[in-house]
Design a protein around this nucleic acid. Structure first.
Length: 582
RNA sequence: GGUCCCGUAGCUCAACCGGAUAGAGCAACAGAUUUCUAAUCUGUCGGUUGCAGGUUCGAGUCCUGCCGGGAUCGCCA
C-alpha cells in the first residue's frame, strides 16, 4: 500500500464532499494537490497542500478552507490528529496501528514490495552504454551503464514495460580504424613482424581477432581487393568486440534485450527513408552555416551542405546531415534509429549519454520532434564524469598505448555490487569521485558497506533467533505476529520510513533518478542502526527477548520486514544483499 | 564568444519535477556501547543556498542578467 496515494484519495474525497455541500465550486483542478511527508517530522506524519492550492480558484481563504478540509479528514479511521499550520498546511498524525499494519504488507510482498502499476504497462525504451565496438569497455562507460540499468529496473518496478537497448556504432570512421587494426593483427598472426602506426588501436585484445581471421581465411585476405578484405576484417572484428563488450556488461550484471546495429540502418535504406520523411515536411535544405563564434577550427571554410532545420525546434543552429565526401554524419542514421524505436511502439524514449555528448541533445530532441510530429517523449539523462582515486591520489590515465582503466579492472578489484552502488550515490548530472580504497572501507563513510551491514546485522539476529528459540521465522508466520508491543519511537521511526518506500520508488521513477533509491537505503540503514544501538543502552529494546515470545516475534517481524525493504531497494540498484559480513 | 551542466555548512553531498524553521555524512568537540557482530550510536558546533533583480500566498527549486567551475562547439562518435 502506498499510504500517500491512499490519503491523496481521502483528501480528494474530503474536497468533493465540500463541493457537494456547496462550500467549494465544482470543476476544481485537483492535480496540484500533494500528500507528502512533512520535511519536519514534528509537524506530523503526513501533510497536504490542498487548501493552499484550492484557495485561489475557489475564492476562499487558505486557512479557513484548511479548517473545513481538516474537519473532514478528522473523521478518517487511521487519523488521530489533524492540525492546520503555517499558510494552510494540513498535517495528519496517524494511529501507530496503521503504521504497524504496513509490516505484514511488506512481509507478504517480499521482493515485490514497492512495486506499483504507475506505468500502466506503457512501453519505454532505455538506450544506454552504446559504446563503440572498438575495444573493451573502460571505466568511463561504467557510470552510464549502471545508471541506465538501474533506471530500467526502477521503471519496471513501477509498472512500465521496459526495453533495454544498445546502439552499436558499427558504421563510422572508428570502425574503419578497427578494421585496419585487425588486418594488422591478421598479418601478425600470419607471421609478419608488425609495428602499429599512430592512429590505429594498439591493444592486445585485437590479437585473437587477427588469429581468427588467419584461421578462417588463411592468406586469402592478402590476395583479394583491399576494400573487400577490410570488410571481412571489420565484420569479424565488430563481432568479436561486441562479444567482449557483452562479457564486460555481464560482469556488471547488465543484459540488453536489443542490440541495434547502425549499419543495418544504412543497409536497409532506413536513413534515406527517414530523411525523405523530413524532406517532405520541408525540414531539410542545402545551405551554408554561419561559422561558429569564437575561435574557428583550423580548416573552416564556408561550404554548402545538407542541413536539418533543427532551429525550427529550438536548436541554436541547423545541423549537417552529410559529410563533404557525401557520406552520412553520425546525426543522420541516429535520427533513423530514434524513428525506428518510435515505430516499434515506444512513445517514451530515454537515452543515457556521457557529458561530452550534451551538446547533441538539442538537435536530437529537435529531430525526434520533427520526425514523429511531436508524438514521442524524449529524455536524455547525462552522466557526468567519474574521477578515479587511489587513497586520495587521482589515478592517471592516458589513452595512448591503451593505458586506461577498464571496466573489468574496477570490477575485479572491488566487485560488481560495490561498483553498482557507488555509481548511484550521486545525482547523474553531478561529477562523482570513486576512490578504490574508500569504497572498500568498512565505515559509516562508505554507504555501500553501511547499507549492507544493516542487512547483515538483521540476518545475524535472525540466525541467532533460529538457534536460541523455537520461532517460526517464515515471512508468512511473522506477518501474523501481534505487533502491538512495538511502541518505541525508534521502532516507529523505522516503520514509518519503511512505509514510505513505495512512494520513494515512484518519485524516483517519475524523475528518472535511481540515485534516490540509494539515498533512501542509506537513511533506512541509519534508522535501523539507531534502533540497534538503542538496544545496547536499553536491553528491553533488544530484538530477542528470551522471556517474552510476543515481543520477540513482533521485533523479528519488524527487522525481517526492514531486511525485505533493503533487499527490494538493492534489487532496483542491481545489488545483491549480503547476509553475513565477517 | 555560443550552448548545456554545476555552484547549498570547513569538506563531500541531499532536499521527493514551487511548500513550513534548508537536511545528512565527514571533520572538530563532548558522550554511549564489556555486543542480538564495539565495522555502530547520541549530542554540540556549523548557512545571506555564488551575486542582483523578477514571478508567486510561498523560491535552493521557475524566469532574466552578471560572477565562478566543467563539458562541448560544421564533416569525430
Amino acid at each position: 500500500m502506498n499510504i500517500f496515494r491512499y490519503f491523496g484519495e481521502r483528501v480528494e474525497a474530503a474536497v468533493s464532499g465540500l463541493v457537494s455541500e456547496g462550500v467549494l465550486p465544482p470543476g476544481l483542478d485537483l492535480s496540484r494537490i500533494t500528500v507528502e511527508p512533512p520535511r519536519d517530522a514534528s509537524h506530523g506524519d503526513l501533510s497536504t497542500n490542498a487548501a493552499m492550492v484550492l484557495a485561489k480558484p475557489a475564492g476562499a481563504k487558505p486557512r479557513e478552507l484548511a479548517d473545513r478540509i481538516a474537519a473532514k479528514l478528522a473523521g478518517e479511521e487511521a487519523v488521530t490528529e489533524v492540525t492546520v499550520a503555517g499558510p494552510g498546511f494540513i498535517n495528519l498524525r496517524l494511529k501507530p496501528a496503521f503504521w504497524l499494519a504496513r509490516i505484514p504488507d511488506m512481509l507478504r510482498a517480499g521482493d515485490a514490495y514497492g512495486a506499483s502499476d504507475l506505468g500502466t504497462g506503457e512501453a519505454v525504451n532505455v538506450e544506454y552504454v552504446s559504446a563503440n565496438p572498438t575495444g573493451p569497455m573502460h571505466v568511463g562507460h561504467v557510470r552510464g551503464a549502471v545508471f541506465g540499468d538501474a533506471l530500467a529496473n526502477l521503471l519496471e518496478k513501477v509498472g512500465y514495460r521496459v526495453c533495454r537497448e544498445y546502439y552499436i556504432n558499427d558504421a563510422g570512421g572508428q570502425i574503419e580504424v578497427l578494421a585496419r587494426s585487425a588486418m594488422l593483427r591478421y598479418r601478425e598472426a600470419l607471421g609478419e613482424t608488425i609495428s602499429i602506426p599512430e592512429g590505429l588501436y594498439p591493444g592486445d585484445y585485437l590479437k585473437p581477432v587477427g588469429q581468427a581471421l588467419a584461421a578462417t581465411h588463411g592468406k586469402t585476405l592478402l590476395e583479394m581487393d583491399e576494400a573487400e578484405a577490410l570488410k571481412i576484417a571489420r565484420e569479424t572484428a565488430v563481432e568479436a568486440m561486441m562479444e567482449l563488450i557483452r562479457g564486460d556488461l555481464a560482469v556488471l550484471g547488465i543484459t540488453h534485450e536489443v542490440f541495434f546495429s547502425e549499419l543495418s540502418l544504412h543497409r536497409s535504406g532506413a536513413v534515406e527513408k527517414t530523411l525523405k520523411k523530413l524532406e517532405d515536411k520541408g525540414l531539410i535544405y542545402v545551405g551554408v552555416l554561419e561559422p561558429p563564434k569564437g575561435e574557428l577550427p583550423d580548416d573552416w571554410e564556408p561550404r554548402p551542405q545538407t542541413l536539418f532545420r533543427s532551429t525550427q525546434f529550438g536548436d541554436d543552429t541547423d545541423r549537417a546531415l552529410k559529410k563533404s565526401d557525401g557520406s552520412w554524419t553520425y546525426f543522420a542514421p541516429d535520427i533513423a534509429y530514434h524513428l525506428d524505436k518510435f515505430e516499434r511502439g515506444y512513445r517514451t524514449l530515454i537515452d543515457v549519454w556521457g557529458a561530452d555528448h550534451s551538446g547533441y541533445i538539442k538537435r536530437m530532441r529537435a529531430a525526434i520532434e520533427g520526425v514523429t510530429g511531436g508524438e514521442a517523449e524524449f529524455d536524455v539523462k547525462v552522466c557526468q564524469m567519474v574521477r578515479l582515486f587511489r587513497n586520495g591520489e587521482p589515478v592517471r590515465m592516458s589513452k595512448r598505448a591503451g593505458d586506461f582503466v577498464t571496466l573489468r579492472d574496477v570490477v575485479d578489484e572491488v566487485g560488481k555490487d560495490v561498483v553498482r552502488f557507488m555509481m548511484l550515490t550521486r545525482k547523474n548530472d553531478a561529477p562523482l569521485d570513486f576512490d578504490f580504497a574508500k569504497v572498500m572501507e568498512q565505515s559509516r563513510d562508505n554507504p555501500v558497506f553501511y547499507v549492507q551491514y544493516a542487512y547483515a546485522r538483521i540476518h545475524s539476529v535472525l540466525r541467532n533467533a533460529a538457534e536460541t528459540g523455537s520461532y517460526d521465522l517464515s515471512d508468512a508466520a511473522l506477518a501474523n505476529a501481534d505487533l502491538s508491543c512495538l511502541r518505541d519511537e525508534a521502532e516507529m521511526a523505522l516503520v514509518r520510513l519503511m512505509a514510505t518506500f513505495p512512494r520513494q520508488v515512484e518519485q524516483a521513477a517519475l524523475a528518472h533518478e535511481p540515485h534516490r533509491v540509494a539515498f533512501y537505503l542509506d537513511d533506512l540503514a541509519a534508522a535501523f542502526h539507531a534502533l540497534w544501538n538503542k538496544g545496547k543502552d536499553d536491553h528491553s529494546l533488544r530484538f530477542i527477548q528470551a522471556d517474552d515470545r510476543d515481543a520477540t516475534l513482533a521485533r523479528l517481524a519488524l527487522i525481517r520486514a526492514a531486511a525485505r525493504v533493503i533487499a527490494a531497494g538493492l534489487g532496483i540498484l542491481g545489488v545483491e544483499p549480503i547476509e553475513e559480513m565477517r
